[in-house]
């Protein structure tokens, strides 16, 4: 009886804390999500009423060459850019958490690229850097290497976008920094007394205690990389060119929805993407039991 009462109380307190989120979930997030799920089974051109077509949209996808191509492009992008970006962010975070003079200043500088977001200026800039007579090629010319049109060659265009993603590494870096700061100093002091070196400290203290944050960054970067849209949109002007080599999944989805008015098809694409991300995220979480350490 008392146990039951306690359980009820425990739930009540927890749900009280969750109230805003639940209200938002039901009132704001759920309705559009369910609506889009419904659209995914229909032919919906946005202006007239949707017509039920069952699984036709889903079936059509697997015969759509452009869709298959966008899947390939996106997977490539996710599996290359996420590890690169996270490693880079962690290295910089480690370097910048040390006792150098003027650290605040450096940290601010390193965050600048991430402040730009998807500004038009970035597109202009990228052309300046990676275009035919861009800075990169001028730099290579010093070493006698002749570069190409990095942005506009189908073989290299995607990699310029990956570089862009790595360049905007500020968000995971800040989160790593915050995580590093939460590691109690006492642990290091104790380790030092035990005679542990820097290397050992990193692998025995820093990295294990940082794993919850690594998990967070990994999951969030995977989720957002799968949905990457802005970089390809601004740099290819929304086309996904050259030859669809930067046609990200969500860029194609956007074209389907807003240029070709096939919102039903776009919604089906979105839900398939959701399923893919969900599976991958679940796998990461499952594996996390092996490598993430909480202080509980």
């Amino acid at each position: 009886m008392i146990a039951l009462k306690n359980a009820w109380r425990r739930n009540a307190v927890a749900y009280m804390f969750l109230t805003p989120w639940i209200v938002g979930l039901i009132g704001l997030s759920a309705i559009p999500m369910v609506a889009s799920l419904y659209f995914s089974f229909t032919n919906y051109d946005m202006f007239t009423d949707p017509q039920w077509v069952g699984l036709a949209n889903y079936a059509q996808m697997f015969q759509d060459q452009k869709w298959l191509n966008s899947v390939e492009v996106t997977f490539k992008y996710v599996f290359i850019s996420v590890p690169l970006q996270l490693t880079f962010a962690l290295c910089v975070a480690l370097a910048l958490s040390k006792g150098l003079k003027g650290l605040r200043f450096y940290r601010a500088i390193y965050y600048v690229p991430s402040l730009f977001g998807g500004s038009v200026a970035v597109a202009l800039l990228w052309r300046q850097l990676f275009g035919g007579d861009g800075l990169v090629n001028r730099g290579l010319a010093v070493f006698g290497i002749e570069g190409t049109n990095w942005i506009s060659q189908p073989d290299t265009a995607l990699y310029t976008l990956i570089i862009l993603a790595v360049w905007q590494f500020g968000a995971p870096m800040i989160i790593f920094l915050a995580g590093l700061k939460q590691i109690p100093i006492e642990l290091y002091e104790a380790a030092k007394i035990d005679g542990a070196g820097k290397f050992k400290q990193f692998f025995k203290i820093t990295l294990p205690l940082l794993t919850p944050i690594v998990l967070f960054n990994l999951v969030m970067q995977v989720i957002s990389a799968f949905q990457a849209f802005t970089p390809a949109f601004i740099i290819s002007g929304g086309s996904g060119g050259p030859l669809d080599s930067t046609l990200f999944y969500t860029l194609y989805l956007y074209q389907k929805a807003f240029t070709q008015f096939q919102m039903g098809y776009a919604s089906a694409m979105a839900w398939l993407l959701l399923a893919a991300i969900a599976i991958l995220t679940a796998l990461i979480f499952l594996s996390s039991k092996k490598w993430v350490h909480y202080q509980e």
Partner: peptide, 29 residues
């Protein structure tokens, strides 16, 4: 920090809300 019923399910739902590209929810919204 708290224990409550359906915690794991709700947490999953919370993550799932992040996985849908906004271009398809923008119209109903």
């Amino acid at each position: 920090r708290l224990d409550f019923a359906f915690k794991k399910v709700l947490f999953m739902i919370m993550l799932i809300t992040l996985m849908l590209p906004f271009h398809v929810t923008v119209i109903p919204q």
